[in-house]
């Protein structure tokens, strides 16, 4: 994309089950698809195991020999590099013995900082800018946050931010609609509990909207803290506090219960979309936003189709030149 904003695309929708998107030729097809649509950078997502072979530095190395080998793989498909990588330290992984860790538990902090290091080193080695992290687990899995909990969460992210900054990598905390940090006020408190020099906010337009926070207004309010953006749309807001339902990942986000909404996230320009994408992007331009804008189609449908529709929106509705 030729624009003053820097555009990237997340690969997450291609890797939607544990045994897909494993063969290199499948990954090449996704990379070529994004390249043809004008996206020169991608966002990775952390995962686990041998089938998630873009999900962990050591597995990427088995596949490509080295960070340079991985970059060569991307470049063979005319993709120039990696903008960022999403990582959730609360997601148990095989490589960490399926340990269940929480950022609000100070006893877990040392292990969380340690587990961030391979990702930070890898991102630095491939010239990526941001480690995008889930700051805290889902609300339904824990008691409400007290003031000290937010302080504890802030501490661990300051520590991770320090490690990342030392390697020249940014750390951006990603708000999501199931998170225990749910309201705008809680999000403000989390930002206030972290060091602006070390920790930024990854603003996801659809997640905020579902969670009842206006992404344009919040960006206007805290634009100096926003270091990363996920751009996607939604047709629904969580008006019934479905995020508190047990198993909200399934009961809410896959329509297992509640209002039975089986798909929440949609492409830019979707009918009935709640995100004012044009206003949001105009605000980014007005404030001279310097980071990556990562377009996502996660939890959508056919990934190539959605990437094409998103690219169309950028070109036709946001006047971004494809090449």
């Amino acid at each position: 994309m030729r624009d003053t904003l820097r555009w990237a695309y997340a690969l997450n929708q291609w890797n939607i089950r544990m045994d897909v998107f494993v063969r290199h030729e499948d990954q090449r097809r996704a990379l070529k698809t994004l390249s043809a649509l004008g996206f020169g950078h991608i966002e990775l997502a952390a995962g686990t195991g041998r089938w998630d072979n873009l999900g962990r530095p050591e597995v990427i190395e088995i596949n490509h020999g080295s960070p340079e080998g991985f970059l060569a793989f991307l470049r063979s498909c005319s993709v120039n590099g990696v903008s960022s990588m999403f990582w959730d330290p609360g997601q148990p992984v095989e490589e960490e013995g399926w340990a269940f860790r929480s950022t609000r538990n100070r006893d877990d902090h040392a292990a969380i900082v340690e587990s961030a290091k391979p990702f930070v080193d890898f991102l630095a080695a491939i010239g990526a800018e941001q480690l995008v992290a889930r700051p805290v687990g889902s609300a339904w899995m824990q008691p409400p946050l007290g003031r000290d909990d937010i302080a504890a969460i802030g501490e661990v992210w300051n520590s991770v931010g320090k490690v990342a900054a030392a390697a020249g990598v940014g750390l951006a905390l990603h708000y999501d609609c199931l998170s225990a940090v749910h309201t705008a006020d809680e999000l403000r408190r989390l930002l206030d509990a972290t060091d602006p020099e070390l920790v930024g906010l990854a603003l996801d337009t659809a997640e905020l909207t579902i969670g009842g926070i206006d992404p344009v207004a919040f960006y206007e309010e805290r634009h100096e803290r926003v270091t990363h953006v996920h751009l996607k749309d939604t047709r629904y807001a969580d008006t019934g506090e479905e995020y508190r339902m047990p198993g909200a990942e399934t009961t809410m986000l896959r329509g297992g219960a509640g209002r039975r909404i089986e798909r929440w996230f949609f492409e830019l320009g979707t009918e009935g979309g709640l995100v004012d994408v044009k206003a949001f992007v105009a605000a980014l331009r007005r404030h001279g936003y310097p980071g990556w804008v990562v377009v996502e189609s996660d939890h959508g449908g056919n990934p190539a189709e959605l990437a094409m529709l998103n690219s169309w929106y950028l070109q036709q509705e946001l006047s971004v030149a494809r090449t």
């Binding site: 698809t33 043809a36 189709e305």
Partner: peptide
């Protein structure tokens, strides 16, 4: 969709 994007990748590259 994917075949079409890849064909364009091939045309461009």
């Amino acid at each position: 969709a994917e075949s079409t994007a890849i064909a364009r990748w091939y045309a461009v590259n």
